[in-house]
Design a binder for these strands. Structure first.
Length: 561
RNA sequence: UGGGGGAUAGUUUAGCGGUAAAACUCCCGGCUCUGACCCGGGCAUCCUUGGUUCGAAUCCAGGUCCCCCAGCCA
C-alpha cells in the first residue's frame, strides 16, 4: 500500500474546530468525544471521507476520541455487507475507533424505556392515523398542521398501545408513537414527529427481537448522550432537526448533554455523491460494482489506486464551512498527484504501441541500460532495462506531419529514448490502408545512457520498451463517470452518464519490472500518469488502472493549435 | 406569503474594525533525460443599497439571490 507519510501538516482551522477549542478553553467539556455515524445501507464515498476526517481529526487534535456508530434503525434497508465494508473503509482511510464500535441498536432497550418515559410525561402519544392522512394533517410549509384526534389519548391508553406495538399485535403502519410538540410550528420537524414505527423486519443485529424501531430523530441524539458525545457533527440538512434534537435531550433523563453542529456536505463536479444515485449505478449495472474504479466510493478510489493520504489531503484542502459548495474534481486529482509524486516508482509502459526498428543497431544484439526508479530520490535505486534493435514507442509520440510546437518524433527528427540513446527517424512503413505501422530509425552509439558527448540537445525524451521482453498488459483508462459538471441538473443524473468513462487498452506493452506489480502499489508510467495494478491481474497478464493522469501541457497546446 | 441557513477571485477556503491571503483551475514565462515535478508572473467593483466610523469584507438597517424542510428514510 502506498500511503505517503505526510509530515505533520497543520490540520487547518475551521468553525467547527473553533467551537471545540472554545468549549475546551471555557471548560464546557471535560474531553472531546465525536462520532462518525453511518447508516449501513451503502458503501462509504468521498462525502463520508470529509465527515470521517473531520470527526476523527478533531478528536485526534484535541486528545479525545471518536466513536464509530452504526445508525442501524431501519432494518428494511440495512445489510451486514455494508457494516463490514464501512469498517474496512474507515480503517483504510487511516482512522481507528479503538474499542469504541457501537450501534444504535445496542441502545434499543434504553431508547424504548425513554419512549415510555415520554408517554408517562404526557409528551408522546400513539397515533392510529393512516400515513396519507397524517401527511395531510401535517399541513404545508405555509399552513399549520392539525392535531390528530388521537393526540389526547390518556397516558394509560398510550402506554398500553405502545406496549402492544412492541408486542407485535399490529401490522406495519398501523400505529406510530409521536412526540407531542406543536402542530403549528413553522419547523415541520416539530409538528409531532414520529418516534417509533412498526416494522416487522429482521434486523442484521437484533434479529426478530423487535418489530418497532426508533426513527433517526429519536435514536440519534439519545445515542450521542449515552456515549457522552460532546460534539455531534452532521451535515446542513439536519439543521432543522436541531430543535427536536434539543427537545428530546431536554425532556429525557439522558446521562449527558451533547450539542449538534452542522457543516456543508461535499459536492464534486462531474460526480454524484448520494447513496440513492450510487446504489442505482450499481444495481442498474452502469458500473461493475461498488468498487468500480470510476465510482466515488472509497472502495472505488482505492481500487483505482488512490492512496488514503491523498484523500486526507484533499479533504484538508477543501476545508469545512457552512456555505453550499461544489468542489472542482481537479482539486482531487491534484491532491492525488501531489501525494503520489514523491513516492511512486517510475516505470516505462507503452499504452498504444508503435513498432520502431533501429536500422544501424546490430541484429540480435541487446544491452542492459540503467533506469532510475525515482529521479528525485536516488535512494529508490535503479533497475536494468534491456535495449535492442526492435522497440515499441507510444503512437502519440510520432506525427508524420507535425505542427510547429510538436517536439517528439517525426521524419528526420532526433529525440532521446529515455535512459537510452538519441535516435533519428529516417522513414516510415505504412500498411495498405496508409496507416503508419512502423518507424525506421538510426541511433547515435555515442549517446548511450541519454547524452551526446558533443553536447547536442534534443527537444524531447520519449519512453519505450524493447520488443523482445516487453510484457503485454491490459490498461484501463478512466474518465469522469458523468459528462457534465452538474449531473442531474436537467433531470435524471443517470441520463448524464459519460458513455466513454472507461477505455480498455488490451495491447499495452510494459517493461518487465511491471510484471509482478501488486494491487494497491502505485507506480508512475513515465510521461503518462499514475497507475495501480488491478485485482483482475493474472501472473502472465497484468491489468493496470489509471489512477490519475499526469498534467498534460502538450494536450492543451495541441488542442489550441 | 411559514421555518431554518448561506453569499469573499472561475472553484474551495482564510480573514473576527486598520486597507483582501492561500490552494486548485486558467493564462504568460523559466527550468528539464518525464511537455511531469519545480520556479517566477498574471487573474477580486468582498451579492446589493444605505448607515455608523478617521477607517468596514468585518458593525447596523433594508433589499436581492441561492440552499434545506411537508418520509412511519437517514
Amino acid at each position: 500500500m502506498v500511503d505517503t507519510v505526510t509530515p505533520a501538516v497543520e490540520p487547518g482551522r475551521d468553525f467547527i474546530r473553533d467551537i471545540v477549542q472554545a468549549d475546551v478553553d471555557a471548560g464546557r467539556v471535560q474531553g472531546v468525544v465525536t462520532r462518525f455515524p453511518p447508516e449501513p445501507n451503502g458503501f462509504l464515498h468521498l462525502g463520508h471521507a470529509k465527515s470521517i476526517c473531520l470527526n476523527f481529526g478533531v478528536a485526534q487534535e484535541f486528545g479525545g476520541r471518536c466513536h464509530l456508530r452504526f445508525d442501524d434503525t431501519n432494518p428494511t434497508k440495512e445489510e451486514q455487507l455494508f457494516i463490514d465494508s464501512i469498517q474496512q473503509d474507515v480503517r483504510w482511510l487511516g482512522f481507528d475507533w479503538g474499542l469504541h464500535l457501537y450501534h444504535a441498536s445496542d441502545y434499543f432497550e434504553q431508547l424504548y424505556e425513554w419512549a415510555e418515559h415520554l408517554v408517562r410525561a404526557g409528551k408522546a402519544y400513539v397515533d392510529d392515523t393512516p400515513p396519507d392522512q397524517m401527511r395531510q394533517q401535517r399541513g404545508t410549509l405555509t399552513e399549520p398542521g392539525q392535531n390528530s384526534r388521537f393526540r389526547t389519548r390518556t397516558v394509560e391508553e398510550n402506554l398500553d398501545l405502545f406496549r402492544r406495538m412492541r408486542a407485535g399485535e399490529f401490522p406495519n403502519g398501523a400505529r406510530v408513537l409521536r412526540a407531542k410538540i406543536d402542530m403549528a410550528s413553522g419547523n415541520m420537524n416539530l409538528r409531532d414527529p414520529v418516534l417509533y414505527r412498526i416494522l416487522h423486519a429482521t434486523h442484521p443485529r437484533t434479529g426478530d427481537a423487535w418489530c418497532i424501531y426508533p426513527t433517526y430523530d429519536f435514536a440519534h441524539g439519545q445515542s450521542d448522550a449515552i456515549e457522552h458525545i460532546t460534539h455531534s457533527i452532521c451535515t446542513l440538512e439536519f439543521e432543522d432537526h436541531r430543535p427536536l434534537y434539543d427537545w428530546l435531550i431536554e425532556n429525557l433523563p439522558v446521562p449527558s448533554r451533547p450539542r449538534q453542529y452542522e457543516f456543508a456536505r461535499l459536492n464534486i463536479t462531474y460526480t454524484v455523491l448520494s447513496k440513492r444515485h450510487l446504489t442505482r449505478l450499481v444495481t442498474e449495472k452502469h458500473v461493475r460494482g461498488w468498487d468500480d474504479p470510476r465510482m466515488p466510493t472509497l472502495a472505488g478510489v482505492r481500487r483505482r489506486g488512490v492512496p488514503p493520504a491523498a484523500l486526507r489531503e484533499f479533504v484538508r484542502r477543501v476545508g469545512v464551512a457552512r456555505a453550499y459548495s461544489v468542489v472542482d474534481v481537479a482539486m482531487l486529482d491534484s491532491a492525488i498527484r501531489d501525494t503520489l509524486n514523491p513516492s511512486a516508482l517510475r516505470r516505462m509502459a507503452v499504452l498504444r504501441p508503435l513498432k520502431l526498428v533501429i536500422e544501424n543497431y546490430p541484429e540480435g544484439q541487446t544491452e542492459t541500460l540503467e533506469a532510475q526508479n525515482h529521479p528525485d530520490n536516488p535512494d529508490a535505486g535503479a533497475r536494468p532495462v534491456t535495449f535492442s534493435r526492435e522497440l515499441y514507442v507510444e503512437r502519440d509520440d510520432f506525427m508524420e506531419n507535425p505542427p510547429k510546437k510538436f517536439f517528439r518524433l517525426s521524419p528526420g527528427k532526433e529525440v532521446r529514448l529515455r535512459y537510452g540513446y538519441f535516435i533519428t527517424c529516417q522513414s516510415v512503413v505504412k500498411n495498405d490502408a496508409g496507416d503508419v505501422v512502423e518507424l525506421r530509425c538510426t541511433y547515435d552509439p555515442a549517446s548511450r545512457g541519454g547524452n551526446s558527448p558533443d553536447g547536442r540537445k534534443v527537444q524531447a525524451t520519449i519512453h519505450w520498451v524493447s520488443a523482445a521482453d516487453a510484457v503485454q498488459a491490459e490498461v484501463r483508462l478512466y474518465s469522469h463517470l458523468f459528462n457534465r459538471p452538474d449531473p442531474g441538473a436537467d433531470g435524471d443524473a443517470l441520463a448524464d452518464l459519460n458513455p466513454d468513462s472507461l477505455e480498455v487498452l488490451t495491447d499495452a506493452l510494459v517493461e518487465p519490472a511491471l510484471r509482478d506489480a501488486k494491487p494497491g502499489e502505485a507506480v508512475q508510467f513515465e510521461r503518462t500518469g499514475y497507475f495501480a495494478a488491478d485485482p483482475d491481474s493474472q501472473p502472465h497478464r497484468p491489468v493496470f488502472n489509471r489512477t490519475v493522469g499526469l498534467r498534460d501541457t502538450w494536450a492543451k497546446v495541441a488542442t489550441k493549435a
